[in-house]
Write a protein that binds this DNA or RNA. Structure first.
Lengths: 116, 116
DNA sequence: CATTGGTACCTTGTATTGCAAGATACTAAC
DNA sequence: GTTAGTATCTTGCAATACAAGGTACCAATG
């Protein structure tokens, strides 16, 4: 299970990434995240985040009818959202490089192998 | 630059990883993080974190004289800290897999290439 | 000897954000 | 008419990176 603190800062970018693939809505996004291996992201996380992203001008919403249940709120990226996504991708790569570099050193170290 | 929110949850594990390599102290840890590419992690981040890790029983400290400045507080991992590090490594891998999987899809998508 | 800069540590308060908990609404099936 | 699934929203809490400020010690500079 991925700890909640570890999701901070990456989850938002990942949601932008998912929306960039196709116009989609909250419920579907949470299913999508689950399929990608993020675990179950709760509604109390996803909906406040979508509202925040909308308020910040990264995504735009339109309501569409659903065959099942109440109206769906479909989101798409704004231009600002697209450039924010690009920024996220570059930041994530930076973090990823740093952590991988460190992990490699730790795993190569005698201390790790020999459990000293 | 790595956004602060993105460091949440990973930084703590990374500090455990650094301490696992050799007995070290706050100031040196922040230099180490910088070398690995995490950017400048501020003292207001590192020292409260070390106290937290100590309080939670993940690291142990002893004071040693320094040729320069006040006494250094050297840390080493406890058994609990070691198993916490192992947990971190597995959680990070999980997150990393999920994000990479998603990023790959986004970059392969027509929408990303054609900037639609 | 006073000052500056680098090392080394700590504390208080703030902003961000994932999530728990609870509420609402609509449809289909039993 | 009750349950289950889809779909959204709100309030408040917990965790944590960091800003801002402080203390202390030593070496070199002037």
């Amino acid at each position: 299970m991925i700890p909640s603190q570890m999701l901070k800062g990456t989850l938002e970018g990942c949601v932008l990434a998912i929306i960039s693939q196709k116009e989609t809505y909250g419920y579907e996004i949470s299913e999508s995240l689950s399929k990608y291996g993020f675990g179950t992201i709760k509604e109390g996380t996803i909906y406040p985040m979508l509202l925040r992203l909308e308020k910040n001008g990264f995504i735009q919403a339109i309501y569409k009818e659903s065959e099942l249940g109440p109206k769906r709120k479909y989101y798409r990226l704004t231009e600002e959202g697209k450039s924010n996504l690009v920024e996220f991708l570059s930041s994530y790569e930076e973090l990823s490089n740093a952590v991988n570099h460190l992990i490699q050193d730790v795993k190569e170290g005698d201390c790790y192998e020999e459990k000293c």
